[in-house]
Every structure is written in C-alpha cells, then in structure tokens.
Amino acid sequence: MAVGDKPAPPAERLNGQAYARPSRLRAILIGNRFHTGFVRLSVIYILLIVLAFLFLLPFYWMVNTALKPANQVFTLPPTWIPQPAMWSNFYTALTTTTYESAPPVYHYAINTIIITVNGVAATLFSSSLVAYAFARLEFPGKDVIFLGILSTLMIPFAVVMVPQFIIWRHLNWLDTLWPLMIPHWFGSAWNIFLLRQFFMTIPREYDEAAFLDGASRWHIFIRIVLPLSKPALAAVAVFAFVFFWNDFLGPLIILSTPENFTLTIFLANFSVAYRGTPWNLYMAAALIIILPCLILFFFSQNAFLKGITVTDIKG
C-alpha cells in the first residue's frame, strides 16, 4: 500500500552509494520495509495458497460427499466432483426419520434455536449489566470480585457438571431445556471481561453529564452506555451464538428423549440411528448444521474480529 509516497529509507541515505546496488537487488528480491520483494512475495503467496488449500480441504470434502449419489460414496478412487450433484441429499438428510416415532430433524433445529436465542439474549443482558458495574461504579471489593470472575475461566465444566446435574435432577428439570437456558442469565466471565474493557473506552463525560442531570445508573446504562456499545454487543452476540449453537456436552448430559435433542446430539447419534453410515447424508446433515454459523460469520466478520481483539490483552 504505502509504496512510493514515503521518503527514502533512512538507512540508504546514511550508507550512501556504497550499499546502494546490493540493497536495490535485495529490495527487488527480498524486499525491505516499504517494498515486498519478488521472491519474498512468491514465498508468501505460495505458503498462503498451500495452507488455505489444506484448511479448506475438509469443507471441500464435506460438500463433495454431501452432493454424491449413494453409489458414488464407495467408489475408488473417489469422485472429486460429484456427477450428478444430488441436491436432494439435503432434503433426505433433513426429512428421513429412521423409525416411526422419531422426531424429524427440524424438531432438533427448533430446540437448538430456542437454546441459542435464549443464550444470546441472556448473555448480552446479564454480562453487560455486570460489566457496567465494573467499568463505571465504585464499590468495596471491586477488584477482588473482578479477579474472582476472571479466575472462573480456569474452572473446567467437569468440576461443576455432576453437582449441576444433581441440582437439575432435584428440580425435576432433567430432560427439559431449562438447564440449558437458565444458568446463562447470570453472566459469563469472558463476556463480562470483554464488555468491561469496551465500556471503559467510552468517554466518562457522556454518562457523568447525564448523572449530574439526575439520571439513574440504570437509565444511563440502558440509554447511554448500551447504545454506544453496539459493536461490542454484536461481538458478544455472535460468539454466544456460535457457542450455544455448537454446545455438546451440556445437552448430552441433560437431555434424554429424542424430542428434546439438539442438532449436535442428533449429529453425534446419526450413525447409530442409520445403522451403517450413508456418508453422503451424514455430510449433508453436518453441512446444514454448520451452515448458520458459517453464514453468520460471513455477514458479521467485523463483529467476530472485534470480539477477539477489542479486549486489551495486555491489561
């Protein structure tokens, strides 16, 4: 980008003629701070292309298989482009029920959507509430509590899994969606941290002015801080979406009857349900299930990137 419009590099000016020629050749091949040399450029792009190829290979293999007619799945060597492309595989994967009273796949999708929507709303609301207090309010024990919140990041789910299971059992809530919805209304450490970092970048004058005008903290939070934090909230929302959509261990432990299953549980059970594995349908189902997250990613890349990088990790 920043090629010609800069003054000559100080190094060359200082070293004068003596080094000019080798350094010019060097600049063409390897490059310097301002030019990317040809050799260097080639190496970079070759590496990028090879790595991108490897990273995309699983997607290609999934799509390729998902579109194959059943008989082509087992041909050797594999068909690299399915002929003809069986778009109906997606329909089949979604609608086939393996036995009479098995719920159709959209049923699992509904459960997943309920859990995800609730999860996103709950995370946004509760985490921003808590984050606001840490960003703006003064109270005894603030630092200790904040450290406490951060240190819960270290606690593996396994430690709380069994006791939580026992709690839900006593409430008779196992095999319902409640245990997968309610706990998320109490803030999550990572998002609290993320939002607090963002809130702190909002100039204090905005809310102090409102405070002096007699607005309540709640009012300031809802009317001033939240509207100013849309990018951060979007970041939290997309990450929460991906997390809840893909959650596996939680539903695996909580849900028992097929009617309550989520898409990930369905996918993990797929081979069992179909006895033997029609890989084309399996891949079609997998593709459908990851599609919402892929679409979300393509439409909100900035939110994703911000979500990762808004936090001042040096803090």
Partner: peptide, 27 residues
C-alpha cells in the same frame, strides 16, 4: 483471514465427523 478463521465457527461434533470421514481408511 476468513479462510483460516472459518473452522473456528464449526462445531466440535460436526468438525469431528468431517475429520472421521477425512481419515476413513479407504474412502
């Protein structure tokens, strides 16, 4: 950046299944 980031939004279960199929002995 998108290419390298993309797998991060794929669920653990779906990703695992894709890789089982990638690693399939013959196919």
């Amino acid at each position: 950046r998108s290419v390298f980031y993309l797998p991060a939004v794929v669920s653990g279960v779906a990703g695992s299944i894709i890789w089982v199929w990638m690693y399939h002995n013959e196919l």
